[in-house]
């Protein structure tokens, strides 16, 4: 337990430092600070990954039971998403200005929650659970990446003269950003659909019904409908640019609320995964 907690606090500290460096880097318009901030975030992934691994071995399941495990793993996923975006498109590393404070808040909030070990129950002992959770995380990652790229688009679109010169030069073209955001949402929508389908099949195996309009099921469908609307506006109504980007930004709270907020706001059979049982 001690090693895990020490590692987690180390990750919290590095994420906090990274968040601060990103903000300072943006204010001072310093590429160097941004680069340091990114590497600090990546450095924070290492102790968190080890902590997750240590806990995984001890409790014999992945990070998906209880507020501490679930929320801290979303922080981990957010930083992984940032690292992937920065690796594939180095000019987008500055989205860490938004990602790292959020990751810090998530992991910090998780550290304040009870960290008791929750054992796998017979209902949870299913491969469908693994698939369900894996695609929940992947959909969150994709939508979050789309959100970050859309923010980049909007920032340059609305404040073309306020962004640092180097950022203007380094950022991909607006058309590229626009399409990248759409692609992330397209992939995220597929992952979200797989998550819902895997969850329905798992519910049928475990409880004997595949859909019961439980709040979290309903909210996942609401989120699915919101992103389906995005795809329709994009592919059928021809929305592009700022309108599409605003939609990508506005849609993110739906997936965040579905994955983290619903179990806290509603009484739900699903709530146990976040609030314990």
């Amino acid at each position: 337990m001690t090693l895990e907690i020490v590692l987690m606090w180390l990750a919290v500290s590095l994420y906090a430092a990274s968040a601060a460096l990103f903000v300072v880097g943006l204010v001072w318009r310093s590429q160097l600070l941004m680069r340091v901030a990114l590497w600090t975030a990546v450095a924070g992934l290492v102790p968190q990954a080890v902590a997750i691994g240590v806990r995984w071995v001890r409790v014999d399941h992945g990070p998906y039971l209880g507020f501490y495990e679930v929320v801290s793993s979303y922080a981990f996923a957010s930083v992984v998403a940032l690292a992937i975006i920065a690796w594939r498109k180095p000019s987008l590393r500055w989205v860490g200005v938004f990602v790292m404070p959020l990751a810090f808040l998530l992991i910090g909030g998780a550290m304040l929650a009870p960290r008791s070990d929750l054992a796998i129950t017979p209902t949870l002992a299913s491969w469908w659970l693994t698939i369900h959770i894996m695609f929940a995380k992947l959909s969150y990652l994709s939508f979050f990446a789309a959100f970050a790229v859309a923010l980049a688009y909007l920032a340059r679109d609305r404040w073309p003269n306020r962004l640092p010169e180097w950022l203007h030069e380094k950022l991909p073209g607006q058309a590229d950003l626009d399409e990248l955001s759409f692609r992330f949402i397209g992939v995220g929508f597929i992952f979200l659909t797989i998550m819902i389908v895997a969850g329905a099949i798992w519910a049928n195996e475990a409880w004997g019904r595949y859909w019961a309009w439980d709040p979290i099921e309903t909210w996942s469908l609401i989120t699915w409908a919101v992103y389906a609307v995005y795809l329709h506006t994009r592919l059928t109504l021809g929305w592009r640019g700022a309108k599409s980007a605003w939609f990508a930004v506005a849609a993110l709270p739906f997936i965040v609320f579905t994955l983290i907020g619903v179990p806290l706001a509603y009484q739900s059979i699903h709530g146990a995964y976040l609030t314990g049982y």
Partner: peptide
């Protein structure tokens, strides 16, 4: 019409949301 589909999807999402606020 795509606008109708968008409207229906948003409507269904809205009703589903409202239904989560009251006991079923």
């Amino acid at each position: 019409s795509a606008k109708l589909v968008v409207g229906l999807l948003l409507w269904l999402a809205g009703v589903a949301f409202l239904a989560t606020l009251v006991p079923q």
